[in-house]
Design a protein around this nucleic acid. Structure first.
Lengths: 303, 303
DNA sequence: TAAAAATACTCCATAGGTATTTTAT
DNA sequence: ATAAAATACCTATGGAGTATTTTTA
């Protein structure tokens, strides 16, 4: 008998004999008769290549190899039980890990609070956070490299489900040195003749085109246009007096120096709002995801 | 199926399917046909209590629980192989541990050298050293609480085997301030009127009575007699000017302050020598013991 | 001689094989 | 229509039972 034919059964039987030091009683405690137990022990001894017990009519003793094998066998059985339990826990959602994507602005709108809450409620669930642009997240969600993502998009692709997490208005972002910075609100058209900062089309194609459409509706085409890779870069550029922008209201919390935020006149309900959705691939089977989504729903509705 | 009926076979099969993500190919790689593999996988899934794979005609995918189970299952199999290897190594004497007893004076006669050599030759064998009186060692050897012991005795009890490790003469030990300290050699009778230090009868009954017999043969009965628990205490007492003694020559290396060693006139081959034997219980099966004993034989004969 | 493990044999439970069906794309 | 897993059913290995022998103290 080689290692390939060793089974947990052999370890269970071995430990029973090591415990009782008596084949008959060990067999009884295992609920079988003595001869098959003798056979099984001979089989492990074959696998080890050496006797594990010395037998005599006086009783049974562990050999040195047998003594060494006791804790080892116990460890295997424990590890096996643990393996089952782990898988069970992951299946029930009590343990496991989730890869969560998020667009940078979520850092100013609910994400930290939500994660903190979730972590304290489910300490055995590991969250792997990935800051990614909205479009990257959509790809990763579809390829199942992410379990869920916080995304800014109006067009939700086929096969993804969503929860609306937050909806914010767009506000004008101008340098503090700019004359408009002190106004209570400005008409969109007032931004017409300024360099305009936008997140790059491929980072958030949806909003890129939307904002251009808004400007078009207000009767101007912004020029020149600076394209940035990140919303924070947009605000930073404005803060340095180099552009104006239309940004989600949440960015007022960014604390970026030199940037002022002013609401836009005529920004009513018909205006596009800056919406954040939590997306996930429907039919994904990570059980922890269900728990995560209910936490998201709670925060989205409650606070 | 509960945990008690899980076998290593299931883990092997699971890992094969997890590897191939295809029941047919996995079965082939395991050298069996597909249906029994399907059955076995259903059995572990039963043990886990949740599916480990999502099946479709497109192929097979691991569920979250399955993903968690892969490393766990691998760990169990590795641990099992390790358990066999450990026991095998102990059986072959390559690993394991030995409890070695020794009388204190062995620290000055070969023991450190011998252990150092043995350790470098057999780094995976752990030696547990126990300083014990000769009589305690005899008991522990017979009760198999020790694998081997370095003992001073002439009477070797039944059932113990022995190797003569060293044989030293007895020398007189007197205070450096004593007039005899500067002599080249002294007759035993010169110690007649001094307080006499001995190791206690129950620590080394053999030598206790032998030394008294020697004194008797020399025509005197030492008095008063101080009984110490340890040879070093004997030398220490002498060093402090409170007694004289007959001690094994090895104690000259102890470096104890205030004690001088002088050979005894008339101490010829017919004198009892102070012999150290390595003893072990014959028929003891610790395979590492064989290696240890051959190392002892080497040192005993060679150096 | 007695107590205990090993052996001999018998049986059946179940692992594994073959043929077929079901399922999903 | 096809590819793949599940099911049904059969076979046979080997695990477990009973009776007996061997061993050793």
């Amino acid at each position: 008998m080689n290692i390939g034919s060793m089974e947990l059964r052999h370890l269970r039987y071995f430990l029973a004999v090591a415990e009782e030091l008596h084949f008959g009683r060990a067999a009884q405690s295992l609920g079988l008769s003595q001869p098959p137990l003798s056979v099984a022990i001979q089989q492990i001894e074959g696998a080890v290549g050496a006797p594990l017990f010395t037998r005599s009519s006086r009783g049974v003793q562990l050999t040195a190899a047998g003594q060494a094998f006791v804790p080892a066998a116990r460890a295997v059985l424990e590890r096996a039980a643990q393996a089952l339990a782990e898988a069970r826990d992951v299946a029930s959602g009590e343990a496991g890990s989730l890869r969560i994507g998020f667009a940078g602005t979520m850092l100013y709108r609910g994400l930290p609070l939500m994660l903190q809450r979730f972590r304290s409620e489910h300490p055995r669930l590991k969250l792997v956070l990935c800051e990614l642009s909205s479009s990257d997240q959509l790809l990763d969600l579809q390829h199942e490299r992410l379990d869920a993502g916080f995304v800014h998009t109006t067009q939700v692709p086929e096969g993804l489900s969503q929860i609306l997490v937050s909806s914010q208005s767009l506000v004008a972002c101008v340098p503090q040195t700019h004359p408009l910075a002190r106004a209570r609100s400005v008409p969109l058209k007032a931004l017409a003749d300024e360099p305009f900062a936008l997140v790059a089309r491929d980072v958030s194609p949806d909003y890129h085109s939307r904002i251009l459409a808004l400007c078009g509706a207000a009767g101007f085409t912004p020029a020149p246009i600076h394209e940035l890779q990140h919303w924070l870069s947009v605000v930073s550029l404005v803060g340095q007096g180099l552009a104006v922008a239309l940004v989600p209201a949440a960015l007022q919390q960014s604390g970026m120096a030199g940037a002022a935020f002013v609401s836009v006149k005529g920004a009513q309900h018909d205006w596009p709002r800056y919406e954040t959705h939590c997306l996930w691939k429907a039919g994904r089977d990570n059980p922890a995801l269900g728990l995560f989504l209910s936490a998201v729903r709670e925060v989205a509705s409650g606070g």
